[in-house]
Each structure stands twice: as structure tokens, then as C-alpha cells.
Design a protein around this nucleic acid. Sequence first.
DNA 1: TAGGCCATCTGGTCCT
DNA 2: AGGACCAGATGGCCTA
Length: 215
Amino acid sequence: MAPHPSGAPGVQVTHELEQPFPGASDYEVTCAASAPPSPTRTPRDCAEAEGGGCRGAPRKLRARRGGRSRPKSELALSKQRRSRRKKANDRERNRMHNLNSALDALRGVLPSFPDDAKLTKIETLRFAHNYIWALTQTLRLADHSVYGLDPPAPPYGELGSPDGGSAGDWGSLYSPVSQAGSLSPAASLEERSGLRVATSPACQRPGAPAFADFL
DNA sequence: TAGGCCATCTGGTCCT
DNA sequence: AGGACCAGATGGCCTA
């Protein structure tokens, strides 16, 4: 797919590439060090506390600060707004470029699909999800065969499928996600191209079915 | 032509 | 004040 590999017309790609991992820029580091990812963001409890804020900023102080600012003409305000918007757009564009670089890095470590188009974003994420799950199962099975004993019941969420299912043998190695049908990138690829998914050597072990067989 | 995917813009919200 | 993040809107490109 990839209608326009380098983006829409007029797009200047300014993000830094050629890094070991594109996500390792200062940008991401600072992001990781600061706020937790959005899912844990607090709901907008304070939305109604506009202006005064809910983090202890004294209203008096804010009012005083506000009063100190110099009144600006409509023209100057409009100019400033435009300038701010433009800068915000640049940042947003750069942010999305970084996100895409990280996605590309993720594509790079996933088994490749010869002759087929680049995975879409959603396919990449879903494939990575299933791939990690499958690798986990492989490790588990390897342990199983080496020690020849039943592994202890895994703690919740450790060895079961990412979606909560549990799998104990190859017969059950189909990720529930894959079984659901619509979420398997391999399946979608086969649908798209009729290709049988190629399997990376690193994904196989002697006597074990190829990942493609259960992805 | 419809639908999918994508890049970009934009305004809102939260955080520093 | 300004940056980061997010989600909705919009328009372009491509394919079936």
C-alpha cells in the first residue's frame, strides 16, 4: 500500500533517522521520564476548574499575573495565535514522524513478508502482539521439553495469551486473537495477497511448526 | 466509485 | 506560557 511513502505533498521530513532505535531520541526519553502513558491519565476531573486550576495555583496570584500582561491589539493577538498554531503543527508533525519511525523499527524486527506490501499500522501492531505471544509460547514449550515436567501454573497474565487465554500445547497455540479471525495480520496478509506467510529462521525450532502456522 | 489507509491540521486537555 | 498528547475532521492516494 503506502500511497505516498514520504507523506503528503509539501511535507518536509525533519525527524532524525539513522538512530539505533528511532524512539531513542531525547524526545522519547523525556516523554518516558515524565507522564505515564495516556491510558493511566487521570480523567478530566478538573475540567470544570478552568482558569483557577486544581493543582493548588492560587487564584490571586494568577489574576495578578494576568493583569500584569500587556494588552495586545487584535492584530498582534491574531499573529501570535497563528504563530503558535504553526509551531504546534510542526511539533505534532514531528511527533507523528517519530511515532512512524518507531513503527518502522517494529516492522524491522518482525518476520518479513516477501513480495508483499508494507504492513499497515494496525497490522503491524496486531502482528507484533501475536508474534510476542507466540514467542512466549515457544519459550514455554522449550522449557517444557527440556525439563519434561509440567510447568507450574503461570501467574496471571504471564504465560497465557495476551488476551487472557491459556495455552499449553501446540494445538492451542493459536492466539485467541488470531482465532478471532479479524485480528491476525498473517491472516489478513494472506487474504490480501494470497501469500503463505514466510517464516523467519529465528522463529523456528526443530520439529516445531512454523510460526506462520499459528499466527 | 466506495472504502481503506495515511498525513496533516486543529482545538482541547493536562502537565511542567 | 508553552509543550505533549489526544481525538476528530479533512483531503489525497490507491485498490478492488
